[in-house]
Nucleic acid binder design. Structure first.
Length: 628
RNA sequence: GCCUUGGUAGCUCAGCCUGGUAGAGCGUUACCUUGGUAAGGUAGAGGUCGGGGGUUCGAAUCCCCCCCAAGGCUCCA
């Protein structure tokens, strides 16, 4: 049975003529209008029998309670399904839904069956106003294959099963229910994560700090000509992204990740993808090509899993680690959820899957990736102090792996938020993520890893065991950093926080577009500046010359507001001596140095980080102005 | 998607309540200034007032519809 429930301000309908021979006989009536109600469109399918009635009524009742309505219209609507029951059976089932519903629902109405009806409906605007369910016979529940069962469980969403229990776990392994935990001063951000996740306390009314900064620093901006959540990146933003991408890729490859590239669009009808797609159909971009209905990937999983399925894998090859940096992954988040660089519809996601022989191997690998994630985040400029960990698992997994969980929490070294479920609903048994808490108290996941016990079978990925049998691997899903755009978001928000507390906002030196700015005192010094610039560039330091016809004071000021770390002014004094006066923005004052020392100082701080040349003209007078 | 707030020069914003035909600062252009560590001076150019419709003699201003953004609700596999 298919059920579409709409919480509506009103519906008006009018039976026009009998559509089928078996249409219900009704007393001819004119237009019917009902206000403030739930309209349940119902299609009875071929496999349905009386056993779906109770499930359907329970669903409807639950929905009415949720939207706090007590008026129901049952509206037979064949178009919801292509696999309809015979009309005589359908009308019986619909009538018993009606009579059964009357036991528990205040006002129940029903539109006639088998008639062409014109109707006019106004659906309420709130997020729960539209709700669709697929209901199958009860006895199928017990024997359904896993894919089928998942479809139903998502349809039925048994509340008991999905109910979360929340704890705070501390290094050492003690867990206390969240409401018993005494948050200390240093747990301030953890408390915000808890508020965000559980209490849903988000009463703020400000534009996020990073949105202002991404514009001010000419990193990125909205692109009105695209879809919402698709951002334009200016030269400085593109440079930052390239550097972050190169860095993460190198680290994952050093860890053993094998880089691959997979398509960004997939066939909705592909058997392995279909069940996934049906589960969250509203969140994909979908496109049509020839006769195919395709969707844009929302992660790298599909491509890598489909690829791994075609590999010939022995247990000796495991753990096998495939990696892709997806530019882009697409998620059609609801428009109201999109925020600056925090939440996008197109984002760059490093995604590394490890195919493991068994749980022991998976756990061992899991710890390696945990360390990798901490290290990557740290090099990107975000330490453990900047993030809060959430860890989510099923009760069974916890009971069987207590020591392992304690080990994870110990390695993090701070109290973490724990969410547990009685039974597994998602494809993973264990998942952790690092959440960045921004200036408005919003939490966003960065690094994450999961133990996936389901997709090996779903995608038919197999390896040959020692004894010759074929097995499905356990799959780990790790992004050591989270989305690249979100890293920039976190760095900008962190800077804003520092600046609010009276510190100096900055970006890590290796991610700064200009590392050294050279300012000539007057035009005649430009030639010498060019020599200094060449020396710096040769040493892979990004430097530029502010040769515009402005006063030195003004150029210094702009260098500061552009967050340039080192500024050197070159005039007669410098030309005739080895000494340089460098203005170090982090110290807020000048000091004497030499070019050689400055080069070493920059190289020291950017060691083991990727280098790319400045992707703007090296003379500021040749640059177009981007925003302000 | 809904609610609230907002959209005026390249950028940040004032004007809107009380209708009378467009303002500031920054940027930009030209000229002067040739400079020493956070904004040198003068003059000029630059606006379908988000889009469309309506009311009016007259609309940036009042009304309706739409688009975009922010914040909230919700969602976040």
């Amino acid at each position: 049975m298919r059920l579409l429930q709409l919480h509506s301000d009103f519906i008006e309908y009018e039976p026009i003529e009998k559509e089928i021979r078996d249409a219900e006989e009704i007393v001819p009536q004119s237009k019917v209008r009902l206000e403030d109600l739930v309209v349940a469109f119902v299609a009875v399918e071929s496999r349905d029998d009386e056993s779906v009635v109770k499930i359907a009524v329970d669903e409807i009742k639950k929905y009415l309670d949720m939207v706090k309505s007590s008026r129901l219209l049952i509206y037979p609507y064949a178009h919801l399904s292509s696999d309809l029951a015979p009309p005589t059976l359908a009308i019986d089932i619909i009538k018993s839904v009606e009579s059964f519903a009357k036991d528990s629902i205040n006002q129940v109405y029903r539109a006639p069956f088998g008639w062409t009806k014109s109707f006019n409906i106004k659906v309420k605007g709130h997020p729960l106003a539209e709700n669709s369910r697929e209901i199958s016979k009860q006895e199928e529940h017990k024997h359904a294959d896993p894919l089928h069962r998942e479809k139903e469980s998502s349809a039925l969403k048994d509340e008991e099963k999905l109910q979360s229990l929340w704890y705070i776990a501390q290094p050492g392994g003690q867990m206390a229910p969240v409401h018993n935990y005494n948050f200390k001063k240093q747990d301030q951000n953890l408390q915000m994560l808890v508020d965000y996740e559980i209490a849903k306390n988000r009463a703020v009314n400000e534009q996020p700090a990073h949105v202002r900064l991404m514009k001010k620093l000419a990193i990125a901006d909205y692109e009105p000509a695209s879809d919402a959540g698709n951002i334009r990146y200016y030269p400085k933003g593109r440079l930052m992204k390239s550097l972050i991408e190169q860095y993460i890729t190198r680290r994952v490859m050093e860890y053993g990740g094998i880089e691959v590239e997979t398509p960004i669009m997939y066939d909705t009808k592909h058997p392995s993808l279909q069940s996934y797609f049906n589960r969250f159909p509203a969140r994909q971009y979908s496109i049509t090509s020839d006769n195919k209905q395709l969707f844009l990937r929302f992660a790298a999983c599909f491509g890598q899993f489909l690829m791994a399925k075609d590999f010939n894998i022995s247990y000796k090859h495991l753990p096998l680690k495939l990696y892709e940096l997806t530019r882009y992954s697409f998620r059609r988040e609801k428009s109201g959820e999109l925020v600056g660089l925090r939440r996008l519809r197109a984002f760059t996601m490093p995604d590394c899957h490890a195919f493991c022989r068994n749980l022991d191997q998976a756990k061992e690998e899991f710890l390696k990736r945990f360390e990798l994630s901490i290290s990557v985040l740290n090099d990107l400029g975000l330490t453990i102090k900047d993030v809060e960990m959430a860890i989510r698992f099923t009760e069974d997994f916890y009971n069987e792996n207590k020591d392992f969980m304690t080990e994870l929490i110990n390695r993090f070294g701070k109290p973490v938020l724990v969410e547990t479920w009685k039974e597994r609903f998602f494809y993973f048994t264990l998942k952790w993520e690092f959440n960045f808490i921004d200036g408005l108290g919003k939490a966003s996941a960065l690094s994450t890893d999961q133990i996936d016990v389901e997709n090996g079978a779903r995608y038919g990925i197999e390896f040959v065991e020692e004894d010759g049998t074929k097995k499905n691997p356990i799959i780990l899903h790790n992004s050591p950093s989270g989305a690249v755009e979100r890293i920039i978001y976190a760095l900008l928000e962190k800077s804003a926080k520092i600046s609010k507390e009276g510190g100096i906002a900055s970006l890590p030196l290796w991610l700064s577009h200009t590392q050294v700015r050279i300012i000539p005192v007057s035009q005649e010094h430009i030639v010498h500046c060019e020599k200094v610039l060449a020396e710096l560039t040769e040493n892979q330091i990004r430097a530029d010359i502010d040769d515009r016809d402005e006063t030195v004071g003004k150029k210094i000021r702009e260098s500061e507001t552009e967050w340039v770390r080192y500024t050197i002014v070159i005039g007669d004094k410098e030309i005739h001596s080895e000494k340089l006066i460098v203005r170090d923005r982090n110290e807020g004052k000048q000091r004497e140095t030499t070019l050689y020392q400055l080069i070493n100082e920059v190289k020291e701080q950017t060691r083991n980080k990727p280098y790319l040349p400045l992707n703007l003209p090296l003379r500021l007078s040749s640059r177009p102005q981007i925003m302000v």
